[in-house]
Design a protein around this nucleic acid. Structure first.
Lengths: 116, 116
DNA sequence: AATCTATATGCGACTTTTTGAATATAGCTT
DNA sequence: AAGCTATATTCAAAAAGTCGCATATAGATT
């Protein structure tokens, strides 16, 4: 049993996960930090759309942005949310199979690893 | 990693918890089945409001109604949701302290237990 | 059978969320 | 410095969700 305020706060945090694209973004992020262009490629949605969802998550403090030149990488930083995701989505996969060619430096590295 | 359809289905289930009053109802239900009038008293909201929230949960199949004369008791029947609630809200309490007098038979029993 | 009681349903106004589109910005690159 | 590139912001329309209120229903009780 919790007090009234807490149900509201918790519900607000749950709301962040209650959206298919945000859920997918979070699922990708828990594997490793991802750059926006990569998320864009994976979700197949326009870039501003991705950035808007990222903003919601960022402003709620569950992800953090790390700039690297032109690219921005997002990282999951909320332990509680990570635990929720693990229960809801299962154990995250080791690494995404990079089927989409992405111009960001990280993906270049990934591509390199595959070519080998 | 899950397919597109699943993120949507899962998000829809999460949405059911992403609401303070529904979350509170579910928290009450996981202790033991509760009759509508009891929920009404606990939440301090009008009865049609409670019934509307219950309908959402019922139609999603996460609670089930059991009629007992004029009263209707609701029971949590979705094991996955129960697990989510346990992680999100913590371990449920043994029994609600019945501070509100409720006319349903169940509450009469509870009152009896307290008077003893 | 008429009434009462607990619960359910339907409907509409209001609010919030979602999403697309245009535009802005910040930092490379030339 | 001018342009390019990745990302962010803003704004508005559309869609979805919330919630109050009036009313319906089903099963007891008289």
């Amino acid at each position: 049993m919790i007090n009234q305020t807490n149900y509201e706060e918790i519900a607000n945090r749950i709301k962040l996960l209650a959206h298919p694209e945000r859920l997918r973004i979070l699922d990708l992020l828990r594997q490793e930090p991802q750059c926006v262009c990569h998320l864009e490629a994976w979700l197949g949605k326009p870039q501003p759309y991705i950035s808007q969802q990222l903003r919601l998550l960022r402003e709620a403090g569950i992800i953090r942005d790390e700039k690297d030149g032109l690219n921005v990488f997002y990282r999951l930083v909320d332990a509680e949310i990570i635990a929720w995701l693990e229960l809801i989505l299962g154990v995250p996969m080791e690494r995404i199979t990079p089927i989409i060619i992405c111009p960001c430096p990280k993906c270049e590295i990934t591509k390199f690893l595959i070519d080998k």
